[in-house]
Design a protein around this nucleic acid. Structure first.
Lengths: 151, 151
DNA sequence: CGCCAATCGTTAGTATGCTAATTGAACTTC
DNA sequence: GAAGTTCAATTAGCATACTAACGATTGGCG
């Protein structure tokens, strides 16, 4: 088999798996009035609040502008609040509302359920190997991008 | 480490890698007036033309309705043509225009370049292992979805 | 033949997601 | 400390992406 074939096949499998998982997860949370990006945002905020929109965008691999409207909707739905930062009046600090906390807990539980089903017959050791591989790949891509926009 | 932690970490790495690759690829093709989904569509059509919109949507993991507008734009840009199917008047058969063929070749070359850079220091054997893993995971997710919508 | 369910494509409406341009605030540098 | 630069958030405009509802066509089945 051509070496290039392996990498092409890998990308195909990666894209397909990622998309399928995203769709499955989205269907679960949409039954509770949420969406995939909102669920992801809640998930992260449950671990760390009082962060700026930029930080949040960076962690979730989204652009700042995308984050703005996502948070607009989440604020409308009473999931989060933008708090003015006393130290830097340019930034907002994002916090969960009580309702947001509840929904975040729901997301956690849905995610845990889904994970237990998706990985039921999967060897944890293989997962660890693939994690290492995926992280190396991510690092390679980051390097690539940095060449064009060095800083 | 908690078993659930491994799966959560895997999903995080998977999502991040997939997103980063998509972004990098999108930046490359957008320099040539294309977008990620259009490039993917061209890529597949280069391998197999004269297929219906449904088939195309299924292969690319998109909904039919999403495919409609994607093909609308690609037709406007002179990349593809919808040909009436004599045998089934409900369906369109999608074919590449000469310009579409050129762009498809360009996409192939961009993809090959990107792959050679992304996987420069990656062991093909590891890739093969991960492909197998990702395929099992995709199959699991498909099964899950089929439970809720059996047919 | 004629009904009927399933299928293909489309439209409508909403939610992401991007880039580019703008505004206001903070930082740098002299 | 004033000017220019940088940075956070926003807006505008476009391109996906989804679900739901619809029209046209086909195929099955009595």
């Amino acid at each position: 088999m051509n070496p290039s074939t392996v990498t092409a096949e890998f990308l195909e499998s990666l894209t397909k798996a990622s998309q399928k998982i995203r769709t499955a997860f989205n269907q679960q949370v949409s039954a509770h009035g949420l969406t995939y990006p909102r669920a992801r945002t809640l998930f992260y905020l449950a671990k760390k609040q009082n962060i700026t929109q930029s930080e949040l965008a960076s962690v979730l691999e989204l652009e700042q502008a995308t984050m703005v409207r996502l948070l607009d909707r989440m604020a409308e739905n009473g999931l989060i609040k933008r708090q003015a930062d006393v130290k830097d009046r340019r930034t907002n600090l994002i916090v969960l509302t009580p309702h947001g906390e509840e929904q975040a807990a729901l997301v956690e539980s849905i995610a845990a359920d889904l994970r237990s089903q998706i990985f039921a017959n999967i060897d944890p050791f293989e997962l660890r190997c693939s994690i290492a591989l995926l992280e190396r790949i991510s690092a390679n891509v980051t390097e690539l991008s940095d060449i064009h926009v060095p800083a």
